[in-house]
Design a protein around this nucleic acid. Structure first.
Length: 461
DNA sequence: AAAAAAC
């Protein structure tokens, strides 16, 4: 089965070919022909299965067959987070490069001005998070009567985030005669109800969840007795022992993210943070710093757990075991992408014991344990005590500001850090060996449509 | 219990 067999246009096949992909993933192979036949779809699939391309590709062809430029948007894609919305927009740009379709990315946290201007010029596609879409709608900036195609992505996550009433309201503003695609990793009753209410005679396509048993990812559980500072000491030990080129460290709380990032920086690591309390421009900037290699450790809340595609992440650390077992699968899925190998460590303190049990229940496998012995001088010493101490170890020297601002590979490192200084060249020229289109694949291209300028920042990889 | 999302 190749992309040429799916009924897509020449231009689209050329754009797909340009990316190097030849074979569709299972969800692409079964969804694309049905979407082209204008059927409603329920797609039970997670990120990493090729989901995004399974609706972006046929949508482009369907829109291309309609009017050249619409006065009103003709399709709407709803995403739960701003970052995911930006990634879908990026995919649209890659696959739509031979089409003259315009789009607007409508997300919160950034100024409305550019989004309003794009809407006034007229766009074919809206890619939005619910809050900003509703906001713009109530200001009378958007007409949805021409929207004959709707994609509700990550529906179960929308449910978790309390978006379902918003989604229902948005659905009522769209014409009844339309095509609706709903994607969800799971089908809890409220999502089933939503589908029954707003989809007609849908075809259900289910693809196997990307197993947490992804053989590319080596998983470890590291038992830690005691408080947060002990977890930090164990984490530092692991960061030094392991050949960490690029790591994402997940915490359950935003406060933990801030504390841990501060602590890591104090100990000389090139770390940064991302969570929902940060301004959107700061979130974008921090992701960029990470992607570009100015920092090689990103401390994150679950805002970064799902879908984000950052190339060359060698390690994922769970500083806390996630509350929801599903999130574990998503978090560790940030490594081992595109056929690469990855390593995932989960620190398990007394508070995490129940969570890790649930994770093992979900994945149906016991994760191997690894005991980490913290170097003597590290043990049981809260970081505060160290600050005043005259016996600061050399590998705890903070990186001077100037060095910290240079890309990590080129930056002079503290002696111990040098062994694990990240090799950035691999990420500088990402090469995709996988011949399939990854659902949340990134791009190196900029933006050429009527879209806010900040996108050129947020969309690079 | 936590995080996410509109100003």
């Amino acid at each position: 089965m190749s992309f040429a067999d799916l009924g897509l246009s020449e231009e689209l096949l050329r754009a797909v070919g340009d990316t190097g992909y030849t074979d569709p993933t299972p969800i692409q192979a079964s969804a694309i022909p049905s979407v082209l036949m204008m059927r409603d779809i329920i797609g039970i699939a997670q990120t990493g299965t090729g989901k995004t391309a399974s609706f972006v590709l046929p949508m482009i062809d369907i829109l291309a067959h309609g009017r050249a430029r619409a006065l009103m948007p003709r399709s709407l894609i709803l995403e739960p987070t701003r970052e995911l919305a930006a990634q879908v927009a990026e995919n649209f740009e890659i696959y739509g490069k031979y089409h003259k379709l315009s789009m607007a990315l409508l997300i919160g946290g950034v100024q409305m001005g550019d989004q309003v201007k794009a809407l006034e010029r007229g766009v074919d596609v809206l890619i939005a998070t619910p809050g900003r879409l509703m906001d713009l709608f109530s200001r009378g900036k958007i007409l949805l009567n021409g929207c004959s195609m709707l994609v509700i992505d990550e529906a179960d996550r929308m449910l978790d985030m309390g978006f379902i009433p918003d989604i229902e309201e948005i659905c009522t503003k769209l014409p009844k005669q339309r095509q609706t695609l709903l994607f969800s990793a799971t089908m809890p009753p409220p999502i089933k109800k939503l589908a029954d209410k707003f989809l007609s005679n849908p075809k259900t396509i289910e693809v196997a969840r990307p197993a947490s048993t992804n053989i590319n990812i080596t998983q470890w559980v590291v038992p830690v007795k005691g408080a947060a500072f002990e977890k930090r000491a164990v984490l530092r030990q692991l960061l030094r022992e392991e050949a960490v080129t690029t790591a994402i460290i997940f915490c359950n709380r935003k406060t933990t993210v801030r504390e841990l990032n501060k602590s890591l920086k104090k100990h000389g690591f090139a770390a940064g943070e991302i969570h929902g309390d940060m301004e959107q421009p700061a979130r974008i900037a921090e992701l960029e710093r990470f992607k570009a290699g100015y920092i090689n450790i990103l401390v994150a809340s679950d805002v970064a757990a799902r879908g984000l595609d950052i190339k060359g992440v060698s390690h994922v650390f769970n500083f806390d075991a996630p509350w929801h077992p599903d999130d574990y699968v998503h978090r560790i899925g940030r490594t081992g992408r595109g056929g690469a190998t990855g390593i995932a460590y989960t620190l398990v303190g007394p508070d995490d014991a129940e969570n890790i049990e649930n994770i093992e229940k979900l994945t149906g496998q016991k994760i191997q344990r690894r005991t980490v012995v913290v170097e003597a001088e590290e043990q049981g010493r809260p970081p505060r005590a160290r600050r005043q101490g005259s016996d600061r170890r050399r590998d705890e020297r903070p990186v001077p500001e100037r060095e910290a601002e240079a890309p990590v590979a080129r930056a002079p490192q503290p002696p111990r850090e040098q062994e694990r200084a990240p090799e950035r060249s691999r990420r500088a020229q990402p090469q995709r060996q996988d011949s399939r289109i990854d659902s949340d694949a990134g791009s190196d291209s900029g933006w050429n449509g009527p879209v806010p300028a900040f996108l050129s920042v947020s969309l690079g990889s």
